[in-house]
Design a protein around this nucleic acid. Structure first.
Length: 288
DNA sequence: AGAAGGCCCTGCGTGC
DNA sequence: TGCACGCAGGGCCTTC
């Protein structure tokens, strides 16, 4: 569910409320997340104070005192929910796997219906070597990719540009929604071979990545179905989407029917009218 | 070594 | 109405 803009939205909201809070009570659901037990979490979290939360790609790094970090990934359906006053929390909420109660009464819960998410306490000093983070590529908000950097990364690659941009080892944080949106705005067919794109085409992609992510962050991300902010609100970027989940509807730019295809087991949405070499050549001629 | 496919899980919408 | 099926912002592991 959540991609970089959704995780960054959560991070910013937590940054306004989490630092210096101390964990008075902690409990877990007893269910496993991504086949990992959470049983040791309460003991390791109790008494700890939170610091400024960080993010890399789709991972949230909730630093604590005592040199520990609560490493979190929201998977497809994970949510962090926060209540400044604990008695407002809804105890009947299903699928809550971690409940934290702070000294003074606030609460922070991790809810995840599908349990594809991840929660682990890791020594902060060991994060760089952690199996989940070690192989991640650069975060685009920290190190914005350029056409040249992307072309160099893709050199020799024989996969599609869609699969290439989804690969967290190349760029960390892009997911299924934003890859479709970025390729639409760059005017590139998602089936093109990543290793064969020209520098100018990579430059068009690079030029869309940060603007798309920032536009979504400005609207608290996209709620396709389950994503919520820490206040249990949906994101507002959904009505800005140009192709994602619009199969069969007219392209907002040219009117051609938006298509859905499957690549690497995931849906890709694109406009055959706007995302072709001839379409781009036409557009370029009209600009002159 | 890189790329593709299956798997993990629950819930919801669709069509019969 | 009920049931089967396909699909969903994810990553990881196995296989080829």
């Amino acid at each position: 569910m959540p991609e970089l803009p959704e995780v960054e939205t959560v991070r910013r909201m937590l940054a306004a409320h989490l630092p210096r809070r101390a964990v008075a009570r902690a409990s877990v659901s007893g269910q496993r997340l991504r086949s990992a037990s959470l049983a040791s979490l309460p003991e390791r979290l109790r008494g700890r104070h939170f610091r400024e939360p960080r993010r890399t790609g789709k991972f949230l790094l909730l630093d604590l005192d005592a040199g520990l970090t609560l490493l979190s990934h929201l998977g497809m359906s994970g949510r962090w929910l926060f209540w400044p006053k604990g008695d407002l929390a809804d105890d009947s909420l299903p699928h809550v796997h971690l409940r934290l109660e702070f000294t003074g009464g606030g609460r922070l819960w991790y809810q995840d219906v599908r349990r594809f998410g991840m929660l682990r306490v890791v020594p902060t000093a060991e994060l760089a070597r952690d199996a989940s983070l070690r192989l991640l590529g650069p975060d685009p908000l920290v190190s914005p990719p350029t056409g040249a950097s992307l072309r160099a990364l893709a050199s020799g690659s024989r996969t599609s540009v869609k699969a290439f941009l989804l690969d967290q080892r190349r760029i960390a944080g892009l997911g299924n929604i934003y890859v479709s949106e970025i390729l639409f705005r760059a005017g590139l067919d998602p089936r093109r071979n990543a290793g064969k794109l020209a520098l100018a085409e990579w430059s068009r992609i690079a030029g869309e990545i940060v603007p798309v992510l920032e536009a979504s962050i400005a609207r608290m991300g996209t709620t396709f179905s389950t994503y919520r902010t820490i206040w249990n609100e949906p994101g507002q970027y959904g009505d800005q989407l140009l192709v994602y989940d619009r199969a069969g509807e007219p392209c907002r730019r040219c009117g051609t029917e938006v298509r859905r295809i499957v690549q690497v087991g995931r849906s890709t949405f694109f406009c055959p009218g706007c995302q072709s070499r001839s379409a781009w050549a036409r557009a370029a001629r009209h600009e002159v």
